[in-house]
Amino acid sequence: MAIFIFILIHWYASLFFQSVFHHRYAAHNLFTMSKFWEKMFYLGCFFTQGSSYISAYTYGLMHRLHHAHTDKAEDPHSPHNDPNPFVMMWATRNNYFNLYIGKTDAAEKYKKNLPEWERFDKIAHNYITRFCWIAVYIIIYALLTTAWWQWLFLPATVIMGSLQGMAVNWWAHKFGYENYKLTNTSKNILPFDFIFWGEAYHNNHHKYPQRPNNATKWFEWDMGFQTMVFLQKLKIIKIKYQ
């Protein structure tokens, strides 16, 4: 039971930073915060994403390209370019690293107002650090597992961030319901999103990419937006309502 509590906490904590910091802050600039709090969010990403840590700058850039080229050949993570979710996850990884190292360039208009902490990324975003995190996860599993089959969840822990990105980007362009008819295949995965911090409302998000709240129907609930409202009450962030 203890290992599943750890996995559950890891899932929600790491996805919170990917949803709120990487997606809504870095890619879409849906709220503002001080440089101090921006660095605190960087640290939060590092401690929750661990071995699957990704650069906020590169994620934001890649996601902007996704919106600009949704479902087209230039889309860096479209399920319509790959035969299954695992091939798409690998393709996304390659597209991400090509952007990170500068092998793939993007137009300047996509690079505006992206958060960047280059010195920190040099520490957090390298293979030595990733292997150290894997060692930490192995120790945690050794302490918490009570049966051999529970170790089967270790690979998912190691690639948690990539797994979350694949889950949203694959399913939300394959299965679900549509509130809006668009020129792309984006869909809402769940009517009540208690799993993906509001990222399940992908169709809503593609209709209104600059709207802080991804929920648009009365029965939809965006956990990420509600968390943003709470952070604003604490004066940590300031939401840009549009």
Rank of each mutant, 00 (worst) to 15 (best):
P76K: 07
S78I: 03
C132Q: 08
H67Y: 11
G102W: 11
T157H: 06
M89Y: 03
V136A: 06
V136Q: 00
L152C: 12
R130C: 09
T104K: 15
R119Q: 14
I134T: 04
M160N: 10
I138G: 06
T58M: 04
M62K: 05
R130Q: 06
S55V: 06
R64E: 00
F97E: 13
V136I: 13
Y127E: 13
L154Y: 02
P79S: 07
I54M: 13
N98E: 14
V168N: 05
R119E: 13
D75Q: 06
N95F: 10
K103E: 10
L99F: 09
I123Y: 12
H80L: 11
F131D: 13
Y57D: 09
M166W: 01
I138H: 07
W148Y: 11
W151V: 13
G44S: 04
Y141G: 12
P76D: 04
Y53F: 15
M89G: 07
P155F: 06
S51H: 05
T70R: 10
P79I: 02
W151D: 03
R64A: 03
F153D: 00
M88L: 15
Y57C: 09
S55D: 03
I123V: 15
E118V: 15
G44K: 02
Q150P: 06
K112N: 13
P79D: 01
I101F: 11
Q49G: 05
A147K: 13
W151H: 08
I159K: 05
G165M: 05
I139Y: 12
T145N: 05
G60L: 05
P155Y: 04
A172Y: 02
N98A: 15
I101T: 11
T48Q: 01
I123A: 11
N126R: 08
K122P: 00
I101E: 07
L114A: 08
D105H: 12
I123W: 12
W151C: 09
N169D: 03
Y53R: 02
I140R: 01
Y100W: 13
T70D: 04
